[in-house]
Design a protein around this nucleic acid. Structure first.
Lengths: 239, 239
DNA sequence: GCAAAAGTGTTACAATTACACCCATGC
DNA sequence: GCATGGGTGTAATTGTAACACTTTTGC
């Protein structure tokens, strides 16, 4: 076989890179969507994204597409999610789309184009194509990883009190988490480190909160095996 | 925009579906590879796969490609892994490839074409393209899912003793697991169910083994939150 | 009876949740 | 001082690893 380029046996397809960019704002988990002006799905909200160009990887493509929405420097994490290939997913013709999950720390407020806005993930507007279900996949991925990795670093500001971090986790997970237990779990695993600084109390008083930061600036798996762990190599201590 | 088909702004690419088909045979985790006859990578071993056709999904494409290697009915599980898009991954020209993880139960021995064979995952031969690293991703995915889902069903025969299941887990995980603990964990979670049958002991004697089966025939998440579980809704019982 | 293999009982350990209590600050 | 918010101590619970022991068979 001399060429891999398009032929009846090897058709080619435009490929899109899509981004599900999530952030916690005002205690809610929100997703970045832009409003389509044209058909199909005119007026519906869609994920940012666009065509994969000839000499870029999908990761680079997503970053490039997002550059028109947010500064890429503001993205604290980007990972591949999944690839959608339903021939009917775009009524104009076949496209294949690979979705990425992007996270923005809660202290940033990127300027967005006029047609782009944040939407709460628990009350999505009408979405174009299969983008609503892609957002659902992204939420599942984020929630799972909050439990066994340190992804929280990507949603949190550089320095924070446990109460602030708790609010972020509650918004992202969608259920209550107590500050006490969150602190224990993350400190025990070495995911958090104290900065030595404290935050001044609010106008109602109260003890000043210690400030923490995430110990590692990139994704790590902190709880690799929930069960069926490798053997410890020693018996438990005899009495 | 009137067309999404190929244009300088919307280039199109041949898209491949690849399969990492894993099975436990003779106590080892093996992967199905075929030997390339032609350049590039002539003589190297590659993952089964081929072009995505015009009106099929990636999942259907993988199943179709695999049909020439194994009966698709023998695949007990198939899930999407990841998509590789490095422009240089194929020296002949750009292709995008989406890899799937496929599992075959250990009691089946599909007839394979002459150029296709099983290879132990802990001693891979020289592989073509980025296929070696894709196999690595697949192993990571399988090992993680053995811990928090019931994927084991896809590697095991319909009915088995705990000792047989233990051998499968050991081969797949790459470290020792005791039959006792495996049984406890899986029974507690309701992943296993007793069939009521027993297996006759070997020629050396021994107590007959009870036979079990997996309670659900499809993938389920059995341990969704290792930590940061949702609140129980009640305090612990007061004395 | 003895060896072999399977399964159960029990203990030890680890991690986490829940909750009471103490600490530090503003007013 | 007192309310408020933050943090620590501690008990209860759960789940799992480790290992001894019993059960059931072939020879």
């Amino acid at each position: 076989m001399t060429s891999v380029w398009s032929s009846p046996e090897r058709p080619a397809y435009p490929h899109q890179a899509l981004a599900v960019v999530l952030q916690v704002r005002a205690g809610r988990l929100v997703v970045m969507l832009w409003r389509r002006a044209n058909e199909p799905f005119a007026g519906a909200w869609a994920l940012p994204g666009g065509p994969l160009l000839a000499d870029e990887t999908l990761g680079a493509s997503v970053a490039r597409q997002l550059a028109s929405k947010v500064e890429v420097r503001q993205l604290s994490h980007l990972e591949q999610l999944e690839t959608r290939s339903d021939p009917g997913r775009d009524p104009r013709g076949r496209t294949v789309a690979t979705a990425y999950l992007g996270l923005v720390p809660s202290h940033l407020d990127p300027a967005l184009p006029a047609d782009t806005a944040w939407h709460p993930t628990d009350a999505l507007p009408g979405t174009a194509f299969d983008h609503g279900s892609i957002v659902g996949s992204a939420l599942g991925r984020l929630r799972a990883k909050l439990s066994y990795t340190n992804v929280g670093f990507a949603l949190a500001p550089p320095s924070f009190s446990i109460a602030e971090l708790r609010d972020i986790y509650v918004a992202a997970l969608g259920y209550e988490v107590t500050a006490t237990n969150l602190q224990r779990v993350l400190l025990r695993r070495g995911v958090l480190a104290a900065t030595g600084e404290t935050a001044p109390p609010g106008r109602a008083g109260g003890r000043p909160a210690m400030l923490y930061r995430f110990a590692a600036p990139a994704l790590e798996v902190t709880d690799p095996f929930a069960v069926l762990k490798p053997p410890s190599g020693r018996g438990h201590a005899a009495s």
